[in-house]
Design a protein around this nucleic acid. Structure first.
Lengths: 189, 189
DNA sequence: ACCTGAACACCGTTCAAGT
DNA sequence: ACCTGAACACCGTTCAAGT
């Protein structure tokens, strides 16, 4: 198992970060989970900042893969657009976890710089994906697509954040439905 | 100054919480700011949970006052609606501070119950205010007003959270403008 | 009534030492 | 190469003691 220690640390830290944020990454409990001592983590990651950065990077890479899959599975761009919030919904379904990036946006002032860079990368790949989908849908011009993509990403992240304070995932679905009804998230009709 | 120690603690804690969250409320540095020792805080507040709860309560009470003032100052409900995001904008202007409630929404899983109750109260008074303004504007029926009010509150909170990761307040203004253009935040025309 | 010093268990981190 | 025990300064909290 020792060859996978690095992976196990990364997985445990990611899970902790989605529940408790960067500040909630606890070396002693991660070490317990992995089955090593907390000092051993420093063999694999030189600091908490480095671990946090690796977690955030892994997180947006995984998200990027899922986004790409949505575009592969759904040829209709309007369908892709409707699917976008499902990524954030999945986190909530999974033990009320929050998007790592939203959590770290809150903690922004206390984050080491190497972590904030990855947090911005997460927002960037989400916005870039939305821009592309809006483009496929022939929606607006380049400038308005960029604006709208940012607005959609932001509103969906907000919905996840606020819905979290209600145990009920229904709240999240309601908010997304409102975004669609209002036209913030455009539909084909 | 000793008669105001309680107030000074509350003020310092509120400021810290908007910058670093509940977890970032540090008894030793608050005590330093107030000019007492950290153990003395426990004379005024029996626990960190009690202090956090008092801070969050004070916060939504203050917000409630500002919201009421907007309705007093602007007789036109459409104008009130356009003014709503200004509360969140002011926090950002003020040293990139975050709405306490958004911060605590992120930290939700780690919050003592007496604090979460106040976090929900903040969301409730914002939504209630928006419902009332939409009602004054004769917008939709009771059910759709409730839904839309939640969507607006959520999206604006999200805009503040995400805009925080860019030093630029321009980003926040852009997002709000997009919400208005898309129709999420309705206007009279 | 209001404040303090000293102690507690806990955190991230370091480092010399083990295999 | 990979891990550990012991120590560091830091946290919230307690409590007996001061004025």
């Amino acid at each position: 198992m020792s060859e996978n220690a690095r992976e196990a640390i990364l997985t445990a830290a990611k899970s902790a970060a989605q529940l408790h944020g960067y500040g909630g990454i606890n070396f002693r409990s991660i070490a317990d989970e992995v089955g090593i001592k907390n000092a051993s983590i420093y063999y694999h990651f030189p600091s908490k900042a480095a671990l946090g950065s690796a977690v955030a990077r892994r997180y947006w890479e995984d998200t990027s893969t899922v986004l790409a899959q949505i575009r592969t599975t759904h040829s209709d761009p309007w369908e892709c657009l409707q699917q976008f919030p499902s990524i954030f919904r999945t986190s909530l379904e999974n033990a009320n976890r929050l998007c790592l990036s939203s959590f770290m946006a809150a903690e922004y002032e206390d984050l080491p710089e190497e972590v904030t860079a990855e947090v911005r990368a997460f927002a960037d790949i989400n916005v870039a994906w939305l821009v592309r989908v809006l483009e496929d849908a022939d929606w607006g011009d380049a400038h308005s697509r960029e604006r709208r993509a940012r607005a959609i990403y932001t509103a969906v992240a907000g919905a996840q954040l606020i819905a979290r304070t209600h145990a009920d995932i229904h709240q999240f679905d309601d908010l997304i439905a409102s975004y669609k009804e209002s036209g913030l998230i455009p539909s084909s009709s």
